[in-house]
Design a protein around this nucleic acid. Structure first.
Lengths: 109, 109
DNA sequence: TCCTCTATTCGGTGTTGCTAGGTACTGGTA
DNA sequence: TACCAGTACCTAGCAACACCGAATAGAGGA
């Protein structure tokens, strides 16, 4: 997909990850893999880890270290109440933007 | 709306402006005003002008200077063929992203 | 003269995703 | 034993983009 999707992900990737966490807790490596499965083939691992650090510092998620059978311990993130609130706000903003764009697309047909 | 929409606009604002230009040619001040009417109250004027310079340098738009009755001459931008192609690519990318997000939203309900 | 509206430009800032590495632990294979 | 692949996390430096604040400049009205 390339550069276009990269720019569009700015601001939405955070919501995407929080939405994934709202379904059930997960750790960075797992989230990256799941995103790749869903078609986001270009998303860099480092991006997810940096993003997780950010949302943790903002207090949107809770973290627990869990030992892994194969590899270093996992940092399992789960959405907390503040994160859930933030996610709702994200969806509201997303809806606003999606509506405007849908209008624009219709208008230019 | 605040910070959230600002971040989301990265990568989409360009498409929004190009979509506006695809309907008919327009100049910066006019585009800004139209966006404000459509609910994008926070978009800074400077942002639009910088964006227009960018898309011009990439050859997506053509420019014509037109005198104004009230104020400095207007720089009227119109979408050219390359811009139209780019806009289609933008819509494809947007659709991809919107679908994933819609899925995620459904899944977390 | 001064202010408002029109219209464009520019320098500096913060956020964000990417690149391109590195660390570390486990298990399998040559 | 030595090496490599898979798992799992982290970091420094970079580029793109939207914002803020200010400046410039022309036209018309108080």
């Amino acid at each position: 997909m390339g550069k276009l999707v990269t720019e569009m992900l700015k601001g939405t990737l955070e919501g995407i990850v929080l939405a994934i966490l709202s379904a059930r807790p997960a750790y960075g490596y797992e989230i990256t893999a799941r995103l790749r499965d869903q078609g986001f083939t270009d998303i860099a691992e480092g991006t997810i880890y940096a993003l997780l650090v950010r949302v943790e510092q903002r207090g949107l998620v809770d973290v627990k270290k869990v030992p892994s059978e194969k590899g270093p311990p996992r940092k399992v993130y789960s959405l907390n109440d503040q994160g859930r609130e933030y996610l709702e706000e994200f969806w509201r903003t997303w809806s606003f933007l999606a509506e405007r764009l849908e209008q624009l697309r219709e208008g230019s047909k």
